[in-house]
Amino acid sequence: MSKIDLVNISKTFDNKKILDNINFTVKEGELVSLLGPSGCGKSTTLKIIAGIIKPEDGDILFNDKSVINIPVEKRGAIIVFQDYLLFPHMTVEENISFGLKMAKVKKEKRIEKVKELLELVHLNGYEKKYPSELSGGQKQRVAIARALAVDPKVLLLDEPFSNLDINLRDTMREFVSNIQRKLKITTILVTHDKEEALMMSDKIAVMLNGKIKQFATPYEVYTNPASKEVADFFGEKNYIDGKINNSHFVTEFGNIPIYSRTSSNLHAMIRPEDVKIFPREYNNGPVGKIIKKKFAGEKIYYDIKIKDKVIKCSTDSINKFDIDSQVCICVDLEKAILYEKTEE
């Protein structure tokens, strides 16, 4: 296991800044996700950690020792790519033992290691099969076993589940999480899937436009996003205007205490799940009309027009309202977060 430190990492391609002063630490045995949209620099960061790409500035430390000048094959960081990259002409056991063979590990030890890993990834009996005979999930498990065979200091996963169907994706997420916890191997996962990062990670580094915008636990990132930019990345939100009066942000939905704000140009962010809707006759909040409804199994998503503003709400499927229904809403202001307004 290794602790990984990225220190002031920057990288430019074709005069475009891809990574801008990246800093974060992955503790021994942690699983950290690099989460962000395509093109934000996630995979470039992973390749820099592995040694495939060299940054213009900054350093990479494994257990407090710089590895910036250590080549890929000696660094001890192994990447599992989304396309698996298995050797098609090799059997499962040959694929898994390839790195060991290159390291000149004796045949007896290679056989023993392959057997151990096949058991770990639940592929006993598949030793003689070729990649073309395997399902997507089985190929992914072989790729992970091959990576683990050389006892890497850090396991790097580059969107490993994106080519799998949704049910298999869930299975593989759980499978990888279990292996990572069992082996306590330091792991960095690249993903653009918010749910994946929230479910699997000890920490999340939210990357936007080549910068780390927030580095925190999944709970902290979701419940207390560091900026409006981070909040918006996690899905649709409501932004409510108001006025400051006597250390409160006063809105038509109620008042929010202000503890330490210097700006007066604020608005409150409210998640759709923190907006409750009731039949019009309850008369216990602002009244509006449902203008849009989307059924999504366990959840129903509503757009509610209140005066000249649209409020988004999500409820469980038990609470059913029809388009054009008159409803009143109640906003859980204890969960509101105040942000300074920015120019759109």
Rank of each mutant, 00 (worst) to 15 (best):
D193R: 07
G41Q: 10
K307I: 02
S247I: 00
L117N: 02
K104Q: 11
V32E: 11
S135M: 09
K211V: 04
E56Q: 15
K11G: 08
E229C: 01
L134H: 07
N8I: 00
D316A: 00
N167W: 00
K307A: 14
G41A: 10
E195L: 05
D274L: 05
S177W: 02
K305D: 09
N69V: 00
S97E: 10
I78Q: 03
V206N: 08
E195V: 12
A149I: 06
M200A: 05
K17Q: 15
I48A: 13
G288L: 06
K16R: 14
H267C: 11
F175I: 01
V26K: 01
L157R: 08
L117C: 09
T12N: 05
T91Y: 07
F295M: 13
L156N: 04
D316F: 14
N8L: 01
D316Q: 10
S227K: 03
K54N: 14
P218W: 10
D274C: 03
Q140H: 04
L168F: 02
V32F: 07
K341W: 00
P55C: 03
D193M: 09
S227D: 00
S43K: 08
N319E: 13
M269D: 08
L86G: 08
I270H: 12
M102F: 07
N255V: 02
P37W: 10
A147P: 01
L85M: 12
I311W: 08
T251A: 09
N265T: 07
A50I: 05
I49G: 05
R280K: 15
K320W: 01
I204Y: 01
N255D: 15
S162C: 10
G254P: 04
T251C: 08
T315M: 14
A231N: 10
